[in-house]
Design a protein around this nucleic acid. Structure first.
Lengths: 335, 335
DNA sequence: CCATCGGTTGACATCGTTGTAATCAACGAT
DNA sequence: ATCGTTGATTACAACGATGTCAACCGATGG
């Protein structure tokens, strides 16, 4: 930096001011400095900046697993969004372990990062409610009554309602729900949305059509649920799955039992992962607005890091239903 | 650190030596220092370490896209492996853009990272051959004759041979290959392995069964290839796809045309991604040894960073075939 | 013509750690 | 008793940037 300063005929501090985009540098001086920077091919040493300023320029994104396409997708968007704001994103797979998720909230990475985005898996709604959070944090996922930090949430209930209403509108009345769990969070909300839609249409809720699946990550959960449903003998003409992974498991079992989708059974998923476009048949799915979630989460976090104070903000992401063949959508061309 | 030094009755340098695990500290002194560290809850300031030592403790892993399950999987393993070695891993999605891949090799992140692992997508074999590489780098992917850096490669040809031999052993003789491209790399190698196996079995290679697909990332590539194959009228009883994504596209088209898998057509993929276990039917696939690739790549890189010199090392990962229902493997229980 | 003021620029100290080289104690050999 | 060695510890400076605050500039107003 000293070399640049000499080349530009100014002090190092002025060079620093130009590079940090501090106000109060005359346009002509700024230009002179930038020319010198270019000429010398000079680049800021981030380690020194960090030491002196105390800012790391790094944010952590903690998520259960990177190999799940939903999270891979969100992670990629978060990385891009972080870069736009001048931050490096470090992905931290928690493996859905309680201790790792706790570590994120209690500032385990203290001097390593300026803030963190957490997509909790092990930590339930009850754990999070009113928990103490260290440093700037944004939570993704289910809505909390008394959020300990900024949040970006999906409208689980509304989205679920939309999905089920779509099936009802298509004339289905025996609609199974796959993935119920009493988690006080997304599962409950999605179930509530399911009930809302049925009730609004005057269709009774049949407990035989509510299929538990505590582990949403595995297609086999969906497959197992479908097997239970078929074996129970309860008639059904549609299945609403609380995520795509389980929906793929359901599709597979239906196919193996010789049931046609959507003729015999309509299927709807939740997440609109990239694969849903390419399953057999293509899966109708709720798009929970991942792009918006990533963008908003980074935005909230960066603003918090850069000094925003006050009560936690909660942003509800927009959702919409993507109708494909599995629920009677148009046959999409194969290619 | 000064506080710790006082508490332990030593100099700051000794504290530093203990924490850096430098040799030449008496056991008793070391214990005293560690006790003081614990008591004060002291943690090294990484920014200062970096500034002084010039090491960032960060490695970059550049890959085309994180939302592709194959890469998500590898990335997760690389992150874990990096942590084991005391390094933070930063994922850098290149979006398969030439410029970004070049930037990795030319040390664009110079002061930001100690080294990088690159999984090239845009850079072809010809580009990489003998290219100048800045700083410690490990390349993943296709084997190069004159590698500019350490490499971890798959045995594309051998793995491909194994897959096709498996189909031949199952009595299939009209085996289509999906994904051929003249890329001078993986595609060519896999095609060569396909030819090897056929030739060894005395089965002629029919050009009508070689299906081009330049873009491996999209299932639609596989779907399009399947459509061309079916429309060509050429008889076939098996399809070997050069990756899983294309295999899923093929499965979908076969299903939509009423062909049964594996009864009418056996299908084999390549990558053994998590989804292959759950497709309809479950997909036989070549496992290219992702775990080993991640482990070896980090290992090579870390050793290079920590001073190893000499000619580039090349490690060939082990592969094995995972036989599932799509090629006549046992019907796996659905759950 | 001089004091003052807002806007720019600069000198200096400092962030927390580690590399270098010097110091020191202990010990066996001369 | 002295000296060279070895091993452990320490004093000191330096890594490269930025925050603080003082110095400076030209222009304005009295």
């Amino acid at each position: 930096m000293a070399d640049v300063a000499v080349a530009a005929g100014v002090s190092v501090k002025t060079v620093s001011n130009v590079l940090a985009e501090h106000p109060g540098v005359r346009e002509e001086t700024r230009a002179r400095v930038l020319t010198a920077v270019d000429a010398l091919g000079y680049r800021l040493n981030p380690a020194a900046s960090r030491l002196r300023s105390g800012r790391t320029g790094v944010i952590a994104f903690a998520l259960p697993h990177l190999y799940q396409p939903y999270f891979g997708d969100v992670a990629e968007r978060v990385i891009a969004e972080g870069e736009r704001h001048g931050y490096t994103v470090v992905i931290e797979p928690t493996d859905a372990l309680l201790a790792r998720e706790r570590a994120v909230l209690s500032g385990g990475r203290a001097q390593q990062v300026d803030g963190a985005i957490l997509s909790p898996a092990a930590l339930g709604v009850i754990d999070l409610q009113g928990l103490h959070v260290e440093g700037p944090v944004v939570l993704l996922g289910a809505r909390l009554d008394d959020p300990p930090a900024d949040q970006v949430v999906m409208d689980d209930r509304g989205a679920s309602r939309t999905a089920v209403a779509h099936l009802l509108a298509a004339g289905r009345t025996r609609i199974a729900a796959v993935g119920t769990t009493q988690d006080g969070g997304s599962a409950d909300e999605r179930e509530a949305g399911y009930r809302d839609a049925l009730t609004a249409a005057g269709v009774p809720v049949d407990p035989a059509l509510l299929l538990d699946a505590p582990d949403w990550d595995r297609r086999s959960s969906g497959a197992a649920a479908a097997v239970r449903l078929l074996d129970s003998g309860a008639p059904f003409d549609a299945v609403f799955c609380f995520n795509d992974a389980m929906a793929f498991g359901v599709l597979r079992v239906l196919a193996s039992r010789g049931l046609r989708v959507p003729e015999d059974v309509a299927v709807v998923g939740f997440d609109n992962t990239e694969q849903s476009r390419f399953s057999t048949p293509p899966l109708t799915s709720v798009d929970p607005g991942q792009e918006q979630i990533a963008r908003t989460a980074v935005d909230l976090l960066v603003r918090r890091i850069e000094g925003r104070t006050g009560a936690p903000e909660v942003v509800v992401a927009d959702h919409h239903l993507v109708v494909r063949e599995s629920s009677g959508g148009p046959r999409t061309p194969v290619v």
